[in-house]
């Protein structure tokens, strides 16, 4: 006796546990009286068991990190300016206030005969930089997912500076060549989160880095060309062989 579509559906629904009490009884009766239905039920159960016994695959360990690095911060809601901010935003008031403050400061210095402040004259031991906070803009990023090295390289701009952020994990020595054919860009500095582990050498138009293990570092480039299209070509090598090539490009909005 052939199994009808309705009975096939009943068997499938029973295996999935998506069956009413009434249909449960119908299924039990069907399996009791029909050998073909019993065989099909057993086959489908074995199939579902086989599929569900397949172990879930684990995503690459760095993937979460790469995703978190790729997302751009959402700009927060702008709060409305307070009275002082509103007042200082008016250029006429700002210039008048600056002029008045200058006059008061000069008068007070002259009246107290204090032309020197010894605390500020002695700068021995003063370390650090005092600078205006400059907003940096995310420009582009690329994920590296290779047998030798994984992670992320991003390009940011901060004023006239371009910053290449490297966040990589290498399972052996890896060399990275960052080439920027545009001669209006030149090397300006290097910083790394770890105290050591990455070496760098720079020449005109390129920077060479050597690293191993988990390393986070930044290469600072001066962008003398201003608002123009930028391309940085990255070539990763291990054991003298090129293992990955990519580039980061940025095209300024018109």
């Amino acid at each position: 006796m052939a199994i009808t579509q309705e009975k096939m559906d009943l068997i499938n629904a029973g295996i999935d546990g998506e069956i009413s009490h009434q249909d449960e009884d119908r299924l039990a009766a069907l399996l009791l009286e029909n050998a073909e239905a019993r065989a099909l039920h057993a086959e489908l159960q074995a199939l579902c068991g086989s599929i569900e016994s397949v172990e879930a695959v684990s995503p690459p360990p760095h993937l979460r990190h790469v995703i978190m690095n790729t997302i751009k911060p959402t700009p927060g809601k702008r709060r409305s300016p307070g009275f002082m901010e509103w007042l200082l935003a008016m250029p006429a008031f700002k210039y008048s206030a600056t002029f008045a403050a200058g006059v008061i400061l000069t008068l007070s210095a002259v009246s107290s005969d204090q032309h020197s402040n010894s605390a500020l004259d002695d700068v021995t031991g003063l370390v650090g930089t005092i600078a205006d906070p400059v907003r940096d803009d995310f420009l582009a990023s690329t994920a590296v997912d290779n047998a030798n090295v994984v992670g992320q390289v991003s390009l940011r701009s901060s004023g006239s500076m371009l910053i290449l952020d490297f966040d990589l994990v290498a399972n052996g020595p890896v060399e990275i060549d960052a080439q920027y054919p545009d001669r209006t860009i030149w090397f300006n500095g290097f910083g790394q989160l770890e105290a050591s582990g990455t070496t760098i050498s720079a020449k005109s138009g390129s920077v060479s880095l050597a690293m191993e293990g988990k390393r986070r570092y930044a290469v600072y480039l001066q962008n003398g060309g201003g608002q123009r299209e930028i391309t940085v070509n990255l070539r990763f090598s291990a054991g003298g062989e090129v293992i990955h090539e990519t580039s980061l490009s940025y095209k300024p909005a018109d």
């Binding site: 879930a56 695959v57 684990s58 995503p59 979460r64 995703i67 978190m68 997302i71 959402t74």
Partner: peptide, 20 residues
């Protein structure tokens, strides 16, 4: 609201099923 930690919590929860 731009909370990256909340996004990371969702990522931790759904990364494996999405990848699979």
């Amino acid at each position: 609201k731009g909370d990256r930690q909340a996004f990371e919590a969702l990522l931790i929860q759904y990364e494996k099923p999405v990848f699979n």
